[in-house]
Design a protein around this nucleic acid. Structure first.
Lengths: 227, 227
DNA sequence: TTAAGTTTCTATACATGTAAGAAAACTAGC
DNA sequence: GCTAGTTTTCTTACATGTATAGAAACTTAA
């Protein structure tokens, strides 16, 4: 909740005085989202709650996407806490940092609408990124390889969250059979023997949480080949 | 381009005869998208091109998301080709299959709007999924672990595509500094030494294509620990 | 005090996806 | 032929994000 980057530059001199502030907008938006869900956060609703008009918001926030990005920032700052006792083994530190980020983001309901940002988010997350990069270098990677490794971890983490979240969302809003279910019936065992073999176990198998498992594999693989 | 699943069930008996078909809709939509980009594909535009009204489309397609999903299906069916000579070594087969999927999807401009589907797509992609699962089992994984492994690969692949594509999209539509750029200035070298050290190299580093690198690491890691 | 400049806010308008319900075009039974 | 039932299509309407144009409220310079 520290000072955010404030593009409107706090020059206190000229012009019409502002009646709403970005922080007020964000505070109200966060309340709406936590109370009633991200679907209820519309620009009109938000404007009326801060006692203004929709277009006035656009002087404090570029568009709704930036608004959500800033919300995620706040959310991360509030929920991402550096552990009091971090693992000493560097490999474990990498995994712990990635898992921490993953846990916080996976619990954030509106995360999907933002997560496609090209890189990881707020200042509060940077410490975890540092842990990952530093842990990888401590295991013998060059700094460049460590950055690439971090990036691979981020792809994996973001992909897991985005896919799992939207899948859950879709299932909740829809009682018709999933695409997967339609495709997975009538598999030709001659052409696709493995898939046919697991076709009935596919749903429970893919419902399992394998994040840490895959993350560990990825980190191990990254560390096994120094380049 | 084979027969798609047709939920409206081809009963030829009662009711008003249809003037448009799902395949006609998809054909037109694909033309619009390939000619003018996904942004130009609106339900109204599509309706007028098939000589109908917007709401009539909704009897052949649940919503726009399903329309895009079906488009991606078509796209994959046209562009995913099984290699004539697949690698014999199972680990290489896994990597080759994942890379093939990745290449096709990364070239598909509207992929991001759909890619968050909870599982991989059309029948044309199933052969590649089979290659991955089968390759992993051939390396000694149990069938369950192989499915989990495939899933980790899919998370990584989808995440890479989604993040890279939207990042490029954002940069194209925006000349203001990226969030990353704002955050990466003024890093405290005491608190975040590694990030401060690479801060100026961060942009070019993260612009590099590391998909295969990360994929190889992930696969190696998955194979290293049979459970 | 007035004029110019700067910033913020408001009013209006548009394009979009799509919900709701009425109408149309057919078939089957009488 | 006529009625009921079924499926597809059309009309209308709404909520949403946001572009555009200009009004309003302030500061500074004259």
């Amino acid at each position: 909740m520290g000072a955010m980057p404030q593009p409107p530059a706090p020059r206190k001199t000229t012009g019409r005085p502002a009646r709403i502030s970005r922080t007020e907008i964000l505070r109200t938006a966060l309340r709406i989202v936590t109370d009633e869900g991200v679907a209820r956060l519309t620009m009109r609703r938000l404007a009326s709650e801060v006692g203004s008009t929709p277009m006035a918001l656009y002087h404090h926030v570029r568009d709704k996407e930036e608004l959500l990005l800033l919300l995620l920032d706040d959310y991360a700052a509030q929920h991402l806490h550096r552990p009091s006792t971090a693992p000493t083994e560097p490999r474990e530190r990498v995994i712990a940092a990635a898992t921490a980020i993953h846990e916080v983001l996976a619990d954030c309901p509106w995360v999907v609408e933002v997560l496609t940002a090209d890189d990881l988010m707020s200042k509060s997350a940077l410490w975890f990124v540092e842990q990952i990069v530093d842990g990888l270098t401590a295991c013998g990677l060059t700094l460049e390889s460590a950055v690439h490794g971090y990036r691979a971890i981020w792809y994996y983490t973001a992909g897991e969250i985005v896919i799992r979240t939207t899948a859950a969302h879709r299932r909740a809003a829809d009682d018709r059979p999933t695409y997967r279910e339609r495709v997975f019936t009538d598999l030709d065992p001659d052409e696709l023997p493995r898939l046919a073999e697991v076709s009935d176990r596919w749903a429970p198998l893919t419902a399992q949480d394998i994040y840490v498992h895959g993350l560990t594999a990825l980190v191990n693989g990254l560390l096994a080949r120094p380049d």
